[in-house]
Amino acid sequence: MNISTDPWVWIAAILTLAIFSFLYKENPLYRFAEHLYVGIANGYAITFYWHRVLVPSFFDRVGAASTPIATKIWLIVIAVIGALYFTRFIPKVSWLVRIPIAIVLGYACGASIPRAIDAEIIRQAKATIITRASFAHWQTGLWAVIILLGVIATISYFFFSSERKGVLKPLSYAGIIFIMIGFGASFGYTVMARISLFIGRLQFLLGDWLGLIK
C-alpha cells in the first residue's frame, strides 16, 4: 500500500466517495457534491469562452491598431447582436433573444441539409447496394445480401402509411427480428460501457489514491 500524499488526490477521492454515497442513500454529502459540480463546470466554461473565443476573435481585433475601422465596426455590430442573449433575462424585450438564435439556428440548419443528404442518405444507400464486386468472396457476398434484406426489413417496420398486410407483413416481422438483434448488440455494449466507467473510478481510488494497483 502506498497512499498518496498529494492533497488534491485526497480532495478528488473525497468527492468521488461523496457521489458514491448516493448508492446507500440520497444524502447531504451527495447533494453538496452535485451542486459543486454544476458550479465548477460552468466556471470552467466561462474561462475558455472568455480566453479562447471572445478575447482573440473580438477584443484583440477591435483593440489592435492594425485592424481597419470598417472591420472594427462590423465586429462591434456582431457583438451587439450576440449581446442580445442578455435580453432573455429582461422580460419587456426578451423577444430580441430570438435574433441571435435565428442567425445561429438558420445557418446550422441550412448548412446541414445538403451535407447530411450526401453523407447519411446517399453514402449509406450506396453502401447497401449489391454489385458483382460484393461477390469477390462468397462470404462477403452473402453478408451484403443479408445487410440489404435487413435494411429493407427494418425500413418496412417503420412504414406507417399502410396496414401491415401482404408483403409488408413478413417483411416487418423480419424487421423486428433485425431490430432486436441490433438492440441486443447495443445492450451488450452498453453493459460494457457502464462497467468501464466504474472501473475507471476504482482505478483512481485503488491506484492513484491508495496505491494498491501496481
Binding site: N42, A45, I46, Y49, V53, L54, S57, F58, W74, L75, I78, A79, I81, G82, A83, L84, Y85, F86, R88, F89, V97, P100, I103, V104, Y107
Partner: peptide, 16 residues
C-alpha cells in the same frame, strides 16, 4: 466572425 462571436455570447443563456 458571425457564428463564432454570437455563439460565444450564447453561454450567457446557460450560465444565466
Amino acid at each position: 466572425d458571425v457564428q463564432r462571436i454570437i455563439t460565444a455570447f450564447s453561454l450567457v443563456l446557460g450560465v444565466g
